[in-house]
């Protein structure tokens, strides 16, 4: 189990993250829920090592991880990027597998072809990434993320730009990867999407964790036992 403790990030006088603490369990789909500006992307960037945190630790089984160890465990897939825009989707997937190393699922290698099939990327394989629509690019990015070998994938807004059908298909794919042992930590601002796909939730508001747990656990904390609507629980807790 990975434990994040007291993670803090400031931009000058503005505190983007204030002593954020939560746990990530192996093989779960964990949802990071919060409104725009709550610090979701900042939290992911700090965990992914592309933004320096001002304080806090990431530990595994009680031992703080070094930078190298963290990199070996966590891969962060940013939102709203178009990496290598001149290169084709096929090349991007091949490069990811070649550069980061192959991911093994149940003793078999996960190949770019497998991922392309899972995310319905076959028709886009020869298209340059820069020419893709928002939804297509999102699926290509998810393909990149799924190919990386780290056991924990942080995906920032994985359903952003996808239509309803694609959202459901991608959610199924992510769940399938979680079932095969990969931990998914998804930052989602659409609470209904999160409720559909996640096992547990971390609720973030104004850079603070307002709650962590399953829907039942959060409902209990919000004094709304039995409440099945995540939106209502979220509003009660924030």
């Amino acid at each position: 189990m990975l434990h994040v403790a007291n993670l803090t990030k400031r931009y000058g006088h503005l505190t983007a993250l204030s002593e954020v603490s939560f746990s990530i369990r192996p093989g779960e789909v964990l949802g990071l829920i919060g409104p725009n500006g709550s610090g979701k992307t900042t939290l992911f960037e700090c965990l992914g090592g592309v933004l320096p945190a001002d304080g806090g630790t990431i530990s595994e089984d009680g031992r703080a991880l070094t930078e190298r160890e963290r990199r070996a465990r966590v891969f962060y897939l940013p939102d709203a990027i178009a990496p290598w825009p001149a290169q084709t989707v096929r090349w991007a997937l091949d490069f990811t597998a070649g550069f980061f190393g192959v991911r093994h699922v149940s003793d078999t290698c996960l190949t770019p072809t497998d991922v392309a099939a899972q995310l319905a990327l076959e028709p886009l394989l020869d298209s340059p990434i820069g020419t893709l629509s928002k939804g297509q690019r999102k699926r290509a990015l998810l393909g990149i993320g799924l190919l990386t070998p780290q056991p924990i994938l942080l995906a920032d807004e994985p359903f952003d730009g996808l239509d309803l059908r694609q959202t459901r298909e991608v959610a199924q794919t992510l769940r399938a990867h979680a079932v095969s042992g990969r931990t998914m930590f998804l930052s989602i601002h659409q609470i209904n999407d999160a409720a559909r796909v996640c096992d547990r939730f971390v609720l973030l508001s104004s850079g603070r964790v307002c709650g962590e747990g399953t829907l039942d656990e959060l409902s209990a904390v919000a004094h709304k036992p039995g409440e099945r609507n995540l939106e209502d629980v979220f509003l009660a807790l924030t």
Partner: peptide, 15 residues
């Protein structure tokens, strides 16, 4: 180019 496109954020995660 890598920074502008966001590719740097991906590549930086390689050790």
């Amino acid at each position: 180019g890598d920074r502008q496109s966001g590719a740097l954020k991906i590549e930086l995660q390689h050790p």
